[in-house]
């Protein structure tokens, strides 16, 4: 119960800040009143759907996400240059491959973060999500590097579930 209250307050704060920033009306009582009404409606709807948990309100782990996104940004930069070099080469020498990538992450959020990171990195796209692995389409064989995928998964689990989740033994569902 206490955690639901915490996530409710957090969501209300984030929604209020978002409303103020997007509307730009800080001092007009009527419009701010509408904003408060909108925040309350959104909050009640979220609570009624039973979504007040760490997965729907992920703002408490923002520092970890920002660290992960920084690392991901560097990876994306490198992969982008490689893809552009291939796409612009005069003879288009490519050999696409489909590979299966093992997934050990258990929580939906970690799996989603991992799959989306693979898709976001140019050169690799998650085509199919299965229970124990992803089917990944890669532009050339260099992009389908299993060690790089494992490193990315380790980092995404660390960002979503915390460092402790990495030390626990995995495998059982």
């Amino acid at each position: 119960m206490a955690s639901r209250l915490f996530y409710g307050v957090l969501l209300a704060l984030v929604l209020a800040v978002l409303w103020l920033l997007l509307s730009g009306y800080w001092f007009k009582p009527l419009l701010v009143g509408f904003g408060v009404f909108a925040v309350i409606v959104a909050l009640v709807a979220t609570a009624r759907m039973g979504l007040l948990d760490g997965e729907s309100v992920p703002f408490a782990r923002l520092p970890q996400y920002l660290k992960y996104w920084g690392w991901l940004g560097a990876e994306i930069f490198k992969a982008n240059i490689a893809v552009v070099r291939i796409a612009m080469a005069p003879d288009l020498n490519i050999k696409p491959v489909m590979t299966r990538v093992a997934v050990t992450a258990k929580s939906d959020m970690a799996r989603t973060t991992y799959a989306n990171s693979i898709t976001l990195t140019p050169g690799t796209v998650t085509v199919e999500v299965e229970e124990t692995g992803f089917l990944v389409h890669a532009l050339t064989e260099e992009f389908a590097d299993q060690d790089a995928f494992r490193d990315m998964e380790r980092r995404s689990i660390e960002a979503v579930e915390g460092k402790k989740a990495l030390e626990k033994p995995r495998g059982e569902a």
């Binding site: 982008n80 893809v83 898709t119 976001l120 990195t121 050169g123 796209v125 389409h137």
Partner: peptide, 15 residues
């Protein structure tokens, strides 16, 4: 083909 074009579209969407 379609799957390779997807990667090129990803370049635009990200960087």
């Amino acid at each position: 083909d379609f799957y390779t074009r997807m990667h090129a579209a990803g370049v635009t969407d990200t960087l």
